[in-house]
């Protein structure tokens, strides 16, 4: 394939990665920002979202759109509640001590993963997209006859993939509105800025924490529900989203939602675009080292203020 169309295809793929990554990472960033804890089990909530989507859509049957709509509503709700109860049962009792929380969430990671293996099984399970049309994309070329439009071989995308980008953008917009325009958002931001002061003002900090933890997990689950018709539900699928979300949250500046979204775009797009220039595994190595170097030379992240 020619260079131009190749780049465009890689960018499109990168945008999808970025969209899902933004949702997932914002969830992680939220828990970090408000609660100051690192949730290592975040990727497992992502996985549970995908598994729930599979379960819901196969239970409902009929046209895949019904299952999809039900999954979009139910899966984040269920996973959110599950996470909130994990917060209530475990994290609260640790008093949100950062290191103990990491240990406990690594524990949760294994428990959830093995639980999924027992309940869901080791196979990757597909979920049918609500709609899917192949869309051939045009490319422009400057020839002797002037500007010409043609359809290069292989340059195409899929209507559902475009929908993912759109839906993720809408959801992020919604989240931003919640955080800036509603009372819940205000309370959460207040807790983020000063926990003690929030407590003094009568904010039920413990409940806000459970809510935040639940919301963070729900966002990861939502990201998974959106991507699972393109990929599959699989019990070990939480690993990569966790790693990438981690990176995005740090690069974006810990706890900064805007920074997180920008970083997700950067990481997602570069993952796509670097693959144009290097052999796949080398591209992964370069992308990984680039991230490490960004952190080394800008430990506070690209867009945020440091906390340590």
């Amino acid at each position: 394939m020619e260079f131009g169309p190749h780049l465009m295809l890689a960018a499109l793929e990168g945008a999808i990665t970025a969209a899902i990554l933004a949702l997932t990472a914002v969830g992680l960033s939220l828990t970090f920002g408000v609660m100051r804890v690192v949730n290592v089990a975040h990727g497992e909530f992502f996985m549970l979202g995908a598994v729930a989507a599979w379960f819901i859509s196969t239970t409902i049957g009929g046209h895949p759109a019904w299952g999809f709509i039900a999954a979009v509503v139910l899966a984040p709700l269920i996973i959110g509640l599950l996470a909130a109860s994990a917060d209530w049962l475990v994290l609260k009792r640790l008093d949100y001590d950062p290191e103990r929380t990491i240990v406990a969430t690594i524990g949760l990671l294994y428990i959830i993963q093995q639980g999924a293996l027992i309940g869901f099984g080791p196979n990757a399970q597909p979920v049918e997209p609500p709609f899917s049309h192949r869309i051939a994309l045009p490319w422009f070329e400057w020839t002797e006859a002037g500007f010409e439009m043609y359809y290069p071989w292989g340059l195409s995308t899929n209507s559902y993939k475009l929908f993912i980008i759109f839906a993720a953008a809408m959801l992020l917009l919604g989240l931003w509105l919640i955080m800036t325009r509603t009372k819940v958002g205000l309370v959460m931001r207040a807790t983020q800025q000063d926990r003690d002061m929030a407590t003094a003002f009568g904010i039920p900090v413990e409940r806000i924490y459970a809510l935040t933890f639940g919301l963070g997990a729900a966002l990861a689950a939502l990201g998974a529900v959106l991507i699972v018709p393109v990929q599959q539900a699989y019990y070990l699928m939480g690993h990569d989203p966790l790693l990438l979300s981690f990176i995005v949250v740090i690069i974006g500046g810990l706890g900064s939602l805007r920074g997180t979204v920008l970083a997700a775009l950067l990481i997602g797009m570069s993952d796509g675009i670097i693959s144009v220039f290097f052999s796949p595994t080398l591209a992964k190595i370069i992308a990984t080292l680039l991230v490490a170097m960004v952190l080394v030379f800008r430990p506070q992240g690209l867009f945020g203020k440091g906390v340590h």
């Binding site: 393109v230 796509g272 796949p280």
Partner: peptide, 12 residues
């Protein structure tokens, strides 16, 4: 790479 989950970008 064995950890890859999306492939379209390699097909060109």
């Amino acid at each position: 790479p064995p950890t890859e989950t999306s492939f379209t970008k390699y097909f060109p």
